[in-house]
Design a protein around this nucleic acid. Structure first.
Length: 855
DNA sequence: GCGGACTGCTTACCT
DNA sequence: ACAGGTAAGCAGTCCGCG
């Protein structure tokens, strides 16, 4: 996309996005910076009209940095005062939490953010002794004005005002009861935070878009930078019922038949000119406040822009703006769902790893139960109606990823905006460390704390002291208790509800409290480390986590399951608790991540050290009172056939002695342990099977092995008592025999035997070794295919020197059956061995290999 | 020249 | 640009073997 473009203001006028002077109720979508006007600019979504308004800062807020040099010194520095961006200086008081003292600082204001930093000859380089000089201006503006993206505002006579929604007293009382006895500071904080959780997420109209592009080579996706080939279809699907595909008529391509899987209400419009097609799409785009795409930042919108320019459409006619790392919309905001779902925390914590590959097909298959349209023909060879149907599905899926389950994803995004104080553009495109950094910075400003420099934290607090088990890691982590091999009936799993956040809040862990400057606190040791924790002040992180954890555990989580509440309340509560979970789960890890600006090794190390102390003390106590501990991992203990009284005693002991809640998490009818850590099968009371870490479950296990594995698992789910294993064993034997016969006779397709492994990096960077999936990928490349990071390689084991072949290039008669026998054996031994079933003998003494060898 | 012991790399999983 | 711990399978290396 072209670098030079008109100012935000000029483009706003061009596309008729109005200035906010007097508005109805609005939601704050984003905060940016206008380089020409030299001020912050807000995008506000008016709820009634779904119109997006611009509001430019009129408070005179300026970018700044802080320095400990006195004002006179700064003013006597000619390089500062003669700097063209220099504005003024001001004396400010701050609390320096790292050193527990009040400090006077000089605030150096500038006319624009680049003069503070990033402009080469900037004030932060000139002054050198600086704080808070690397915060992006739009975020700094949010902190100082205490804005909360995702919350409600109005503009009256040009003045921006927060709209306060009254929370019913009854509700307030309930929540405050949780924090009874908490400090005044925490209660003030609660006052600020409560509305963010309880104010309903407003309706947000949105339009999903997807494009298809002609390509002369079927395997090649055209480069959006060049946009050399025609856009042949654009689909547009919206929350207000628009369902449309714009299709380009091409000389040699037939319209064909309208496929029946495309709903009859989908409108297909044909265009003779590509230019008209693009303009029609742009015309629709500007009518919605939110544009949704899947990979629009890197493909669809970029392609449209460059293609439009190529076709002579002027910049003035294209409502996109090119930002540093994404494409935004002049008349609203652009949410690229690929960027959002790519976020590891969203993937793991919000969607519990339900999708593994970050492709539209995989995600929608996992979350919506429907994938992309399957096609065998190249895009460019589809008939026009088939093309329309294919393209339509993609936009539909993109929209539905935000609407399913009562707008879950949209609500989650808004809740995350409120919690992290990030604009919608940023929260959907950044990782969890950015979220946590931003929310912690915001609290610093609210409390008038000086935001520390990373080097100062490291210098004062130092490095870690424990030794990690894994080579290359910085400090010791969690404990895993060796499991007792075999089958165990009636097992109760106890766990510490969000252990690490509990530790951070209860033990007052924070970069400002661990190894604090007071000599009298040194007695307050963290077990297993030389570190100590402050006894005089509450740490800022500990305070934040306390609030977020307790409100989640004691309020939102139970309320989201409370059937007596109306459905819409419950669904909001459930989203809130999920959003909090995402944040809380990452709150410990970031302090052990070197790149995090508040990186503090002793904080991370103390957290895991206390975790080890907690689980160790708990197992000791359990054994002491006569409970049998079968297994445990980090924050859980598996107890065999417990006396309920003793169980209760243990839980009470934990909250009293350790200050951390120990709850019943799960009850199993029985559990089988193979003897390996992080590896077991548990059957719940209702017969559902819970599988952890077993090979049969892993995504790279061949489908054939996995199917067989789940058939066996299904039988195990039906076993109610020890005696029933005998019958189960016989049924398992039958399954194995039939499956092996199937394999022997090669009555299966190659893809059932495929091992699927994801390439995590580009092909050329495998320099140390050549793993099998890389070998297969190299063969694909030789055959003219393209592979890139994130692609899953499907390969089979074959006889011959290479040993592997990608499925696309292999034949069923080439496979090496012995390798699959081994696979089967390891996969099944993990569940059969604890039941005392011998893998080889289960087929009546015959070696499994014989099934292959006599073929 | 070959096979076993070993280490290291890579991926996928658990908490 | 959240963390560490566990496991599997393979690649590659070293060592011993008259």
């Amino acid at each position: 996309m072209e670098r030079r473009e008109k100012t935000k203001e000029e483009r706003r006028i061009k596309f008729k996005a109005e200035l906010a002077h007097n508005t109805g109720l609005c939601m704050l979508l984003s905060v940016g910076y206008d380089g020409k006007k030299r001020c912050a600019v807000l995008k506000l979504l008016e709820l009634d009209t779904q119109k997006v308004y611009y509001w430019y800062d009129n408070t005179g807020h300026k970018p700044y940095l802080l320095t400990d040099l006195p004002q006179e010194v700064v003013l006597n520095n000619p390089r500062v005062v003669s700097h063209p961006g220099f504005h003024s200086v001001e004396l400010v008081k701050k609390y320096d939490s790292l050193n527990d003292r009040k400090v006077l600082m000089t605030k150096v204001k500038a006319k624009d953010p680049l003069s503070i930093g990033g402009g080469g000859n900037d004030l932060r380089t000139i002054i050198r002794r600086v704080w808070e000089a690397r915060i992006k201006y739009h975020n700094c503006y949010i902190y100082d004005r205490r804005l909360v993206p995702g919350m409600l505002y109005v503009v009256r006579d040009g003045r921006l005002k927060r709209v306060m929604v009254k929370i019913p007293d009854e509700l307030k009382r309930e929540v405050y009861a949780i924090f009874e006895g908490a400090s005044e500071e925490l209660k003030t904080m609660l006052e600020e935070w409560l509305p963010l959780f309880f104010v309903k997420v407003p309706k947000i109209e949105r339009l999903a878009l997807d494009i298809e592009v002609f390509s002369p080579e079927p395997e090649h996706v055209p480069d959006p930078k060049e946009a050399k080939y025609a856009i042949i279809a654009i689909s547009l699907v919206s929350t207000d019922g628009l369902r449309k595909v714009l299709v380009l008529e091409r000389e040699d391509v037939k319209r064909g038949e309208r496929p029946d899987y495309m709903d009859p209400d989908v409108e297909v419009e044909f265009f003779k000119e590509e230019r008209d097609l693009i303009l029609a799409a742009l015309d629709t785009i500007i009518r919605y406040p939110v544009l949704l795409t899947y990979n629009g930042d890197d493909f669809d919108l970029r392609y449209i822009w460059n293609r439009a320019r190529r076709l002579g459409i002027t910049r003035d006619q294209i409502p996109f703006t090119s930002e540093r790392d994404h494409i935004d919309l002049v008349t609203g905001v652009h949410v690229d769902l690929y960027r959002f779902f790519e976020n590891r925390s969203i993937q793991v914590y919000a969607f519990s790893n339900k999708y593994k590959e970050v492709t539209l097909d995989a995600i929608s298959q996992a979350l919506l139960g429907i994938g992309k349209v399957k096609r065998l023909t190249a895009i460019s060879e589809l008939s026009l109606y088939d093309l329309a149907a294919y393209c339509f599905r993609d936009a539909r899926l993109t929209l539905e990823l935000t609407t399913f389950n009562d707008d879950l994803v949209m609500k989650l995004i808004v809740l995350l905006m409120r919690i992290t104080k990030l604009s919608i553009n940023e929260v959907t495109r950044t990782q969890v460390s950015t979220w946590i950094r931003n929310l912690v910075y915001y609290e610093h400003r609210r409390l008038n704390y000086l935001i520390p420099n990373k080097e100062d934290i490291l210098q004062r607090k130092g490095e870690t002291t424990t030794r990690a088990i894994i080579k290359g890691k910085k400090y010791k982590g969690a404990i895993v208790i060796q499991p007792k091999v075999g089958v165990h009936f009636n097992v109760v799993v106890l766990d510490f509800a969000s252990l690490y956040p509990s530790i951070i809040s209860r033990w007052n862990l924070s970069y400002d409290t661990v190894r604090c400057p007071h000599p009298e606190c040194r007695k307050n040791k963290v077990p297993g480390t030389p570190h100590w924790v402050c006894t005089k002040r509450r740490g800022i992180l500990s305070q934040i986590i306390w609030l977020l954890r307790d409100i989640r555990v004691y309020w939102f989580k139970p309320k989201s399951k409370d059937k007596s509440l109306p459905e819409d309340r419950r669904s909001l509560f459930s989203v809130v608790q999920q959003a909090l979970k995402v944040i809380l789960n990452a709150s410990y890890g970031v302090f052990g991540a070197e790149e995090f600006p508040l990186y503090c090794p002793p904080v991370a190390e103390s957290t895991t050290a206390i975790g080890r102390y907690v689980i160790t003390r708990t197992t000791e106590k359990a054994r002491e009172i006569g409970l049998e501990v079968l297994y445990g991992d980090t924050d859980s203990v598996f107890i065999h056939n417990p006396d309920p009284e003793k169980l209760k005693a243990l839980m009470e002991w934990s909250s009293k002695e350790l200050g951390i809640d120990l709850d019943i998490d799960k009850k199993y009818r029985y559990v089988t342990f193979s003897g390996l850590k992080k590896n077991y099968l548990g059957v719940f009371e209702d017969g559902t099977v819970d599988i952890k870490g077993l090979i049969g479950k892993k995504s790279n296990t061949p489908e054939f092995v996995r199917e067989t594995f789940y058939e066996v698992v299904n039988i195990l789910g039906q076993v109610k008592s020890f005696d029933e294993f005998k019958e189960a064993k016989e049924r398992i034997r039958k399954i194995m025999v039939s499956r092996y016969t199937q394999l022997k006779n090669r009555r299966l397709t190659l893809d059932k035997l495929a091992i699927r492994v994801m390439m995590s990096k580009p092909l050329y960077s495998y320099t140390k070794t050549t793993p099998q999936h890389v070998k297969a990928a190299k063969q694909l490349v030789s055959a003219g295919k393209h592979v890139k990071p994130g692609d899953v390689i499907w390969f089979v084991k074959v006889r011959g020197p290479e040993g592997v072949k990608p499925v696309q290039l292999a034949r069923i008669d080439e496979i090496d059956p012995d390798k699959y026998v081994d696979y089967m054996k390891t996969a099944f031994e993990q569940i059969l061995e604890p039941l005392d079933i011998d893998f080889d003998s289960i087929l009546g003494g015959r070696r499994l290999d014989s099934f292959f060898n006599n073929s």
